[in-house]
Each structure stands twice: as structure tokens, then as C-alpha cells.
Write a protein that binds this DNA or RNA. Structure first.
Lengths: 358, 358
DNA sequence: CCGCGCGATGTTTACGTAAACATCTCCTCC
DNA sequence: GGAGGAGATGTTTACGTAAACATCGCGCGG
């Protein structure tokens, strides 16, 4: 079956290398560089890794050879040898929410700064099986650590497949007792939102909450209720949306008809946007008749009608802390736990005002 | 220094393996699985890769051993052996624009579907050096191909460091003669926008364009002008923004004062949002006095005041095509070039109407 | 003036996998 | 019943790198 082996034109000792003809891209290896520079491959390795004990002269020779051959270290071999990939895996259910994206961006930047790459693994449908599958793939992938950006608590189910040595940091979860968690101070922000509205003179504050199953939504709602009770107000019934502007609009149509509703705290800016539209449609002015406050401070919030008062989240800081924590855990092999909270900042624009004088 | 080695209860022959004590996480290797299952490591490899010629009985034994040891293939070794990483690198300047993010998400999903991971490498500041640095790092990273999502034409500068065997697909560029390019049909969408407004009876259409240096902005502006000329209208002067809602607001303040401006085509939805705010502030009703059309169809567009008429971009398709193209190029090693365009769809909502009867 | 020690470099080996090749075992067919 | 063959499994080797160890040469102190 075989045709005659096309023996490569090998002449004597050094003259091998080049048998990998065909489609394969030939990349220069250390051996190639070593041969050209007239040194051993180990010396090339030393130069490549900035090891100290190399004569400047030798160094220059090696560097020249590298340049001539366009040498690039093979990261697979490097990873195999070193036992690490210098890569952080990020698992997220969706890139469609502002927070996830901004956090991811910050993670990528921080990781790059630390010399780590970021490998992405979105899971479209957050069912239990999907998560397990995702982790399973992540293990097989080349990652040293994992950051989970998730809103629903499917992590536990996923844990099963998590290899014991991969460190995990979680965003947006209350599992601080079992994992290292980094998150925005949801409770503090929500309290600030309620306080702001009460300080303006509103009798109480309604809440347009996020979907069931989201920890962020849960915490924002809890803190809203707690802040009201703390101020001796009766919390109105919770109205739920699903984070989308459309859901905010639908909820808004209901709220607009309630004369006693003069202040609404929306759990995110998108829902606040929908809310504004509904109120406008029903002829209730913001902020004259109804005050609206959001959460997130998306870049567009200042251009809403009217510009939205909201709570600014520092996603960059969240991302940075994720990377910092996960790398530290990796290096110290420690099983640190606990939650790190990043404070929010109240941004007052034009959607909040004192209630209409009754 | 060492305490007594806790030698695992290994009896007889196979009893080595375990010297890698200390911090290192011990992962079971093929050899471990082979030993436990009583087969050769090659057989384990065959099972692991779903090779056909393995008895069902042997297969089950191996699978059981894998499970018991929690075996996970070492992707570094695998990549080294196979010469491929099953990873696609994505380089992008920013995740702050809707288009980039949505495209990235689609790429990640498509790639996952094909069994490829996506490694991210954002470049914060798009200077020439940054790009070169990015590519340089990407080469050292474990990627088989690269997809570039960029708005500014810094790719040429970057090419220098691009290793010859890495295939590249570009989003949002006019370099179709040198690269494989996938993009939204910017021109077609813009033409549709202008047509829609002219059909409603507007004498002409103003354009709130994107920033200088963006190909997408350039093409949208060119097509806008061409469509007007084609219809024998005089294009008004181009007004520029920077994609942000804030810049749309500033531009809107200028446009609002021009009585002859009855229709504006904004190059993206965010700027359209700012425009709406400016018009509202200056007492010009939309769509009664001025019609506004956007581009992108971001999820919030339907909740603007009024709901925005815009051009829907199919980012999912763009991402899918990127992956499809780059993988095909990789496999065929072909130097295919040319541009693939993904059509847009006009979504008519409430921000456009016939001009005020003069 | 000899040997010790240290700095520079070379040699060996292992990382975990999988292709290529080698065996080994049945089963079939004449 | 023996040759031939196909299918199942084992053995060898190489992928590119870097740690561990070996060697070589030179300067310095006793």
C-alpha cells in the first residue's frame, strides 16, 4: 500500500529536520535555533526564559538566530513541561447583560496585565446539564483557574465535575461560605437607592425587581425591603421583571395606574428604561409625578428621558479583583473563601425629585 | 526536610508514579488509567478518542478506570502531539460596543459548537504598537486561527507579527482584497434607512455618523450619501458623533435648531437615543416634527421614547460565518479572500413618520 | 602549583499523548 | 487443517520544552 518512503534529503549528522513536509506549518523549534546559533537547545531555552547565567555574547547569537528563524516558543510544549497554561477560563451564561460583559472585559484586561490569557466558555442555556458540560470541557481545556460569572445558582451542580486543583472565583453569588466570591455591594447600593428616595420625601418606595433565581435580584430586593422596614415604612408588593427593558415596560404599565406609587427603584437600568416609557405613555411625568432610580449606570443612562438617577457599579474593579483573587488562590494553593464587595456610587441625575405635593 | 513519603498502596510491578508530590496537583495520566484497567496506554488513548477498534468489554474497563481516577486528558500534551490547539483567538479593541460583544458571543457559541475554545485578547488602546503586541502574544498563545474584530484599520501594521500559518478572518474592515472579511451589509442597511425616510415623504435625510476612522461609520456615511444622490436629493452636511449616546445628544442639540431637518439617520442606536433626548429637550416631537432611524437594533431600542425604528443587524450570523470561514481556511490551508456580507432588516417602530405638512 | 569552586554551557531525561509499527488471536475459506 | 487475513491490543517513538545533572574552563587561595 505504501509508496516508497520519500526519505528526506538527509546528509549526515546535523542535516535532518524538515521531514514534516505537506500541509503542516513548519515552525522553528528550539533545536533549529540552537543549531543555527551553534549552541545547545538548553541554552536557547535559557535565553528564551531570561535565565541569568548566559554570556551576553551567546545571548545575542541566540537572539539573532531566533529572529532569523522567526522562532516562537511552542506554548503546548511549554504548558506540558511547566504544568500550567497561563490561562484563566471564564464561564458565563450570557454576554447579553451589561454587567457580565463589563466584568469580562475587566477580567481580560487584568489577566493580560498578569500575563494570562482568558478563554471563554459561554453556556447558552443554563440548565444543570449544560453547566456540567461546560465545566467538563473547561477541564479538558487549557486553564489554570476558572472565574464563574453567573446569576443563577447552578454552580453546586457543576462542582461535581470541577477538578480539585482548579481554583474558582465566583461573581454574583451568595456562596461565599464555600467559594471565593467577588461582587458588587448589592445590598449597600439598594439601601442607598431607597434612602435617596425616602430623603426626598417619598412615603415609600416600590421595587421593580429582577427575575427569580438571580442572586443579584434577590439581594437587591431583600435590601430594598430591609431598608424600608428600617425606616418604618411598609414595603409595597414586589413587582418582577426579567432585566429586559420590555419587562420593565410591562411592569410600568401596572405601576403607572397606582396613584400611590410615587417612587420606583428598578433593579437595573434597562428595566428603568422600559418603566420610563410606560409612565410616559400613561401620562405620568418623571420626576414630577413619579421618581425612578435604576441600578448599573450603563453608559446610556445619562441619555434617557429624563436622564436616569442610578447606582454606578464598578465592574472594572470587580473584574480586577476576580483575577487577583483567583491568581492568589492558585499560587498559594489556599482554599480561601469569603466575599469581597465592591461599593457602588449613587449618581443623581434628573429622574428623581420630591413627591408631588399632596 | 521531607516527611516520610506516604507511598500509595501500590503492590508489585506498576508501583511507581507518585513522585510528583508537593504542591503540584496530581492528575491521572493515561499510564495511570492503563495500569488500573490492565491495558496499554495506547488502548486508553483509543478509548479516549473514540477510536473504533476496541472491544466493548475493554472499553468499559477503561472507562471505569477513567472514572475512578477522575482522568482528564491533558490538553497540553494533546496539543503538542496533534499540533493544534482547537482554540480560536479573538482580538478586539473593546467590548464596550454592542456589535463587538454580540459578535463575540456568537463566535464563542459557534466555536464551542465546533469543539473549539475561544481565547480573548482585548487591546485597550488601539495604537499600532498595541496591536503588534497583541498579535505577538497571540502567537505565543495557543491558537490555531485568529478572528479580528476591529473598527480601525490597524491590521496592516499588525500583520508584521502574524505568523504565516495562522489564518485570519476580519470583521468590519474593507480589506477584503487581502483578507477574508465578514461583515454586516452596512451599505445595504444604510440605503434601506434612507429609502424608508424618503418614501415617507421627507425631502432629504440628515446623517449622524460614527467617528472618523471607523470603517463601519465610513461605509454607512458613504451609502447614505449615495442613496440620496441616487434619488436626486442634496445630501446635507454630515454630522459626526463617536457612537456614544452623549455624542448623539450633543449633535442633536445642533440638529434640533435646524427647521429644515425633518429626518435623521443615526449610525447607531445609542446615538439615536441621545438624539431623541436632545430633540425632546428642544421641544421637537418625534416622529411628528422629526423622524429618527437608528442602526443595530439593540434590545433596548423598542423601549426608547418613542420606540426606535432601526436596522437590525444579525450579529449571530456574522459570528457564525467568522468561525465557519476561519475553520475552513485553516483546514484547506487556502488563502481565500473576499468579503461576505450579512443583510440587515428594517424594523419599523414609532420614531419615523411622514414629515410635518408644510 | 595544585585543587577547589563557580560560572557557563552541554547532555539526559521526562512531561502526556498518539501515530506508526509490531504482535497476537481468532475465524474463515479452500 | 493450514494459510491468510482482519481485528484487537501492545510497543516504540517523537512532539518541543525545561529541570536536573554533568562537564568544562578559568581564577584564586593555600
Amino acid at each position: 500500500m505504501d509508496t516508497a518512503d520519500r526519505t528526506p534529503a538527509n546528509v549526515s549528522g546535523g542535516g535532518r529536520r524538515r521531514p514534516r513536509a505537506g500541509a503542516r506549518s513548519q515552525t522553528a523549534s528550539m533545536a533549529d535555533v540552537a543549531r543555527l546559533a551553534g549552541v545547545s537547545s538548553q541554552t536557547v531555552s535559557r535565553v528564551s526564559n531570561g535565565y541569568a547565567g548566559v554570556t551576553e555574547e551567546t545571548r545575542q547569537q541566540v537572539l539573532a538566530a531566533m529572529k532569523e528563524l522567526g522562532y516562537r516558543p511552542n506554548s503546548a510544549a511549554r504548558a506540558l513541561k511547566r504544568g500550567e497554561f497561563r490561562t484563566i477560563g471564564v464561564i458565563t451564561f450570557s454576554l447579553s447583560t451589561t454587567g457580565n460583559v463589563r466584568t469580562l472585559e475587566a477580567i481580560a484586561n487584568s489577566a493580560a496585565h498578569e500575563g494570562y490569557a482568558v478563554t471563554l466558555l459561554p453556556v447558552a442555556v443554563p440548565t444543570q446539564d449544560e453547566v456540567r458540560g461546560a465545566f467538563s470541557r473547561l477541564e479538558e481545556l487549557a486553564v489554570d483557574a476558572v472565574i464563574v460569572i453567573m446569576e443563577v445558582h447552578l454552580l453546586d451542580a457543576a462542582t461535581i465535575a470541577l477538578p480539585p486543583h482548579v481554583q474558582v472565583v465566583v461573581v454574583d453569588s451568595d456562596a461565599g461560605d464555600r467559594y471565593t466570591v467577588v461582587d458588587t455591594d448589592q445590598a449597600g447600593g439598594s439601601r442607598a437607592a431607597v434612602r435617596h428616595l425616602l430623603d426626598l420625601g417619598h412615603a415609600t418606595v416600590w421595587h421593580l425587581g429582577g427575575p427569580d433565581g438571580s442572586f443579584a435580584a434577590q439581594r437587591r430586593a431583600d435590601a430594598w425591603r430591609a431598608a424600608l422596614i428600617e425606616a418604618d415604612r411598609t414595603p409595597p408588593p414586589l413587582v418582577r421583571g426579567d432585566w429586559s427593558a420590555e419587562s420593565g415596560y410591562r411592569a410600568g404599565l401596572v405601576l403607572a395606574d397606582r396613584e400611590d406609587c410615587t417612587a420606583v427603584f428598578a433593579a437595573n437600568d434597562q428595566m428603568a428604561l422600559g418603566l420610563l416609557r410606560a409612565l410616559n405613555e400613561r401620562g405620568r411625568s418623571v420626576p414630577e409625578d413619579v421618581s425612578v432610580i435604576g441600578f448599573d449606570d450603563i453608559p446610556e443612562a445619562g441619555s434617557f428621558l429624563p436622564p436616569l438617577t442610578t447606582l454606578h457599579q464598578d465592574f472594572a474593579e470587580v473584574g480586577r479583583l476576580c483575577v487577583e483573587n483567583v491568581l492568589r488562590k492558585m499560587r498559594h494553593q489556599g482554599a480561601e473563601r469569603g466575599t469581597t464587595l465592591v461599593p457602588t456610587r449613587l449618581v443623581v441625575r434628573e429622574s428623581t425629585a420630591p413627591p408631588p405635593s399632596s
